[in-house]
Simulated assay, not measured.
Amino acid sequence: MSARVVSLNVGLPRPLAHGRGEVRSGIFKSPVRGALRFGEAGLEGDGQADTEHHGGADKAVCVYATEHLPYWQRRLGRSLEPGAFGENLSTEGLAETRVRIGDVYRVGTALAQVSQPRIPCFKLGARHGEGKLALWVKETGLTGFYLRCVEPGEVRAGDEILPVESAEHGFTVAEANRVMHGDGRDVAGMERLLATPALSAEWKRMLEVRLRKATAGQEDKLTGRSAQSR
């Protein structure tokens, strides 16, 4: 199956209405004509307000499939254009069930690697006036994902996205979402995902916390059963 960049989107932080006040956010992305340089820090002309949770080498570029837009249009009751989810690359052919953590793609003249699923935050809901949107995105698994830059280059709308290296035995983005956002009992899945070399440092930290809690919970249950049997 072929894949391509439908729209290339960038934007700088600006005020976003939230509750009775406002926050600054880089979630507003606009389509760009022509090529942009894709480097370790992301696309030229793009920016984030909250650099603790957004951006950085592991999250240089956010990708979202345009195939999801009809679903969200029905659920939100409004028209949505590429870039509506704050993504830099609006794509065709890169669904979460297909893409694996660690896959490497040639995008334009740049080389990029899949690093982690996206975790939507409250700002997505604030942008679209639906406070539950971030939760819905997480529940559906239609999250999109991030790329890190392996080799800088130029990207433009219409570019093919060509597979260069496949993490055949790795986790798809969809599977990674299931393990991270599940009920916390899939210890084996968390251990396998944590051992994925290409997984971002942020996700590894979160998984380590979840794994410790899950392991402690299992030990508590075993200890409880042992005490009852005595």
Results as ranks from 00 to 15, higher is better:
residue 15 P to N: 04
residue 15 P to V: 03
residue 15 P to E: 05
residue 18 H to L: 14
residue 18 H to T: 10
residue 19 G to E: 14
residue 21 G to V: 09
residue 22 E to Q: 12
residue 24 R to W: 15
residue 26 G to W: 12
residue 29 K to M: 09
residue 31 P to H: 08
residue 38 F to Q: 03
residue 39 G to E: 14
residue 39 G to Q: 09
residue 41 A to H: 15
residue 49 A to S: 14
residue 50 D to M: 05
residue 56 G to N: 06
residue 59 K to D: 02
residue 64 Y to L: 09
residue 64 Y to Q: 05
residue 65 A to P: 12
residue 67 E to L: 13
residue 70 P to E: 08
residue 72 W to N: 07
residue 72 W to E: 10
residue 74 R to A: 13
residue 85 F to C: 09
residue 87 E to H: 04
residue 88 N to A: 05
residue 96 E to D: 12
residue 101 I to K: 09
residue 104 V to C: 10
residue 105 Y to N: 04
residue 112 A to T: 05
residue 117 P to R: 06
residue 119 I to C: 10
residue 120 P to E: 08
residue 121 C to L: 10
residue 127 R to Y: 15
residue 133 L to N: 07
residue 134 A to C: 04
residue 137 V to F: 03
residue 140 T to L: 11
residue 143 T to Q: 06
residue 146 Y to K: 06
residue 149 C to W: 01
residue 150 V to K: 11
residue 150 V to N: 02
residue 153 G to D: 06
residue 153 G to K: 04
residue 154 E to A: 08
residue 155 V to K: 10
residue 159 D to A: 14
residue 166 S to T: 11
residue 167 A to L: 02
residue 169 H to L: 15
residue 171 F to R: 00
residue 175 E to N: 06
residue 179 V to S: 02
residue 181 H to Y: 13
residue 183 D to H: 01
residue 185 R to C: 01
residue 188 A to K: 15
residue 188 A to V: 14
residue 196 T to Q: 11
residue 199 L to C: 00
residue 200 S to T: 03
residue 204 K to V: 00
residue 205 R to S: 13
residue 206 M to Q: 14
residue 206 M to R: 14
residue 206 M to A: 12
residue 209 V to N: 00
residue 215 T to F: 01
residue 217 G to T: 13
residue 217 G to C: 04
residue 220 D to V: 11
residue 221 K to W: 15
residue 222 L to H: 13
residue 223 T to K: 15
residue 224 G to C: 02
residue 227 A to W: 12
residue 229 S to R: 07
